[in-house]
Design a protein around this nucleic acid. Structure first.
Lengths: 262, 262
DNA sequence: CGTCAGGTTGATGCCATTCAACTTAGGTGG
DNA sequence: CCACCTAAGTTGAATGGCATCAACCTGACG
């Protein structure tokens, strides 16, 4: 499969062969593996490199001194953990692995080279950061206004679309390698209540979730109750080019998937 | 008073006289005034310029189709409404004025000149965007984990510190030119419940709020119940230089303010 | 076969919402 | 100067969504 960072940034703009080579080199120097509960980065860490998730799922999270904690974002393959961290003094939150994770660290000089001498890449990194911020805003709205049911619908829609954008869906299915406890932390619900909400989703035939595989028989039916508007993911430019084939592919695989739909 | 954008970016790094001149020119071309309920930007707008708040308060907000809406951020003088919007296709949320607002629009060519030919400025703009994202994460945590009481404490702390960073506090007081309805939208509470929570804050002597003026007799006492950690504002570098005088100034004015503290 | 993580269920209570009314302050016109 | 109006703030009572606590179930694994 293509390099996930390149695949992701190409959602924004086509990168020249040269730029792609530069990115590949930059992300192949310091590769590290992390186990499921391990931290990629801790709050307070001084920047030693920009971290890119190459495979597996991670999450941003933040803890209060009294033990409460929340997941603030899911990081999927191709995502940057600490975009341009060098301009900030230190991490204001932590990043933890949810599954086994492979991550690359881009050293400071390499990163500065990308930013200064490769305008298309630095543009794409801006895009990455801005979309990340847009997603964070949507999560704020999610917690602020949506009910538990809507919240969960919305989260699952988002994850599915983001995974599809980097080619990690199979038809109407994708991996969802996280426990209900983690989904609860991400939606601001208790584990118990999340479990019940999930059962509502199943009862309404909006999702099938079994053994870490999520199937969405009818994506629009899931988007509708959440009032899901995908504009905040800013995948539109990609839509002009890639997503046509992407969509066609996804559709054709829908046909051979288990759940036939009206 | 100094130019608010310059003042803000200098929280991150000292700008040369030349850079300051460039910024001043960039933000003096297209000045616009907005009335209290007017929109500076609407969801779906295509970028026509980067908007900077010069005076007054604005907010990012997002509405759901069924009428629910939430305030996602407060924009104070010096804040950018749509950082680097040119790399995104369109606005994914709206920006509205809460008070009379003066804003400048930086045109596309001017903005690109800043980004390409003035590294210290483009660095500072990265910092601005990253801090904005960090604040958004903190708001996510706020909504996800903190109680109504803690949430309000936290919000007021943040606003006070951000205002102080751009020199808009007088001793332990600052303007808070927003209605309780807006504070409710920002904290994800109903108006009624926000009102009651605010009364709790007053009863606990944590704040004095009258005729749009907020006074915080003891900032640490307000930070404590919210488990407020200012690291996410990334004002630390400034702290090395400016904030010493800033703090000294603030202290000396505390002395002549109404509420003496132990 | 015991253990443990992950998932499911029931009972109970509180925090926050909802609806509805009332107060206060500022502004405007007769 | 008072009658009226509107926006903002305040209060009470009833409802409900979600949390909390405590079991219990299930499958994977050594």
């Amino acid at each position: 499969m293509a390099h996930p960072l390149i695949r992701k940034l190409e959602q924004f703009t086509r990168l020249s062969a040269d730029d792609q080579r530069v990115l590949e080199r930059a992300t192949s120097e310091h590769i590290r593996q992390f186990g499921p509960r391990e931290d990629l980065l801790c709050e307070g860490d001084k920047p030693s490199g920009v971290t890119v998730v190459l495979s597996g799922w991670a999450c941003r999270y933040k803890q209060l001194e009294d033990g409460r904690s929340a997941i603030l974002a899911f990081l999927l393959p191709g995502d940057l953990c600490d975009s341009n961290i060098f301009t900030l003094g230190e991490m204001d939150h932590s990043v933890g692995a949810l599954t086994p994770v492979t991550a690359a660290a881009i050293s400071r000089p390499l990163f500065q080279d990308l930013m200064l001498n490769h305008p298309p890449i630095s543009q794409a990194l801006w895009w990455e950061a801005l979309v990340g911020a847009a997603i964070q805003r949507e999560w704020t709205l999610n917690l602020s206004q949506r009910t538990a049911f809507e919240r969960l619908c919305h989260l699952l829609c988002e994850l599915f679309l983001r995974l599809r954008a980097v080619g990690l869906t199979q038809g109407s299915s994708c991996e969802l390698p996280v426990t209900q406890a983690k989904l609860a932390e991400a939606t601001g619900l208790t584990l118990v209540h999340l479990n019940r909400t999930l059962q509502e989703l199943r009862a309404a035939n909006l999702v099938v979730l079994k053994s870490k595989t999520l199937t969405i028989p009818n994506l629009e039916a899931l988007m509708s109750p959440a009032l899901f508007n995908p504009n905040y993911l800013h995948l539109d430019r990609a839509a002009i080019g890639c997503a046509v084939t992407e969509l066609a592919l996804s559709r054709s695989m829908d046909d051979q998937s288990t759940g036939p739909r009206p």
